[in-house]
Design a protein around this nucleic acid. Sequence first.
DNA 1: TCATTGTTTTAAAATCATTCTAAACTATTG
DNA 2: CAATAGTTTAGAATGATTTTAAAACAATGA
Lengths: 141, 141
Amino acid sequence: MDSTVRPYSKAYDILRNAGLRPTRQRLGLARLLFGDGDRHVTAEQLHAEAASANLRVSLATIYNTLNQFSEVGLLREVVVKPGRSYFDTNTSDHHHFFHEETARLQDIAADAIAVGPIPTPPSGTCVERIDIIVRVKKADK
Amino acid sequence: MDSTVRPYSKAYDILRNAGLRPTRQRLGLARLLFGDGDRHVTAEQLHAEAASANLRVSLATIYNTLNQFSEVGLLREVVVKPGRSYFDTNTSDHHHFFHEETARLQDIAADAIAVGPIPTPPSGTCVERIDIIVRVKKADK
DNA sequence: TCATTGTTTTAAAATCATTCTAAACTATTG
DNA sequence: CAATAGTTTAGAATGATTTTAAAACAATGA
């Protein structure tokens, strides 16, 4: 728990619990992703961040890792913009503000938006997830 | 109005009203898009459809046209899947079911989902649009 | 500890959707 | 009908992501 003493133990546990082998790359990325509050990252961002943390990881590994983390439920992929994927470290039920101009995402707590009953899904299907994206732009003064 | 007599008059009017020059390509695509009920198309789909309707249009023009139509409000771009853009001919306020396995979109009328008040947008911004995507998958029997 | 085995990482190439470029074409206006 | 401004196009370019095949590594058990 005390990250000054065992800096990778949290990351290590996260990977272990997810059934992922704790490699140097995954440990480092997990630490960046889950070390400090909720985050929204793109592959390129994380790659840059890894570089400045002196963590040598190829871009291919960044993509592999983000996808694996999403598969095991450690991340949630948020689709807001054609041609770019965002990954959210907050995997609990919640929604998003999306700033069109700055391409920045911001969480909205699940209970901050009341959603009534959803119409019956098409026959043979069941609801997997409900995504609400509130697209905001600079207020015109 | 009678499309058996003046097959392009509706498309022509749509383009005229939108301030777009009615070229052969735009007329043909408008007819495919707006000819018959609400539709959700990707660029590739529309390209294939144009081809089988004997409408010769390059893929670049498909993209240009879909983007122009969106800019003038004739189409609404729906972002549901990384790496692929969908365009919806229904531009009124409404939401979507998205079938993860088949990558198919389906409209949900705006009044079929009751949404409570949205939290105040971050300061300096105003809400541009609210997208609700209900992701469904095959029900596991 | 060490060898074996199955995973993971990687650089580089490949892919895919989309956009750009510059030249050829076409609708509109005078 | 000529001039011009807007459109279309093939093909090249881009950018994000995935694949490939080989080298590096982690886990396991002797």
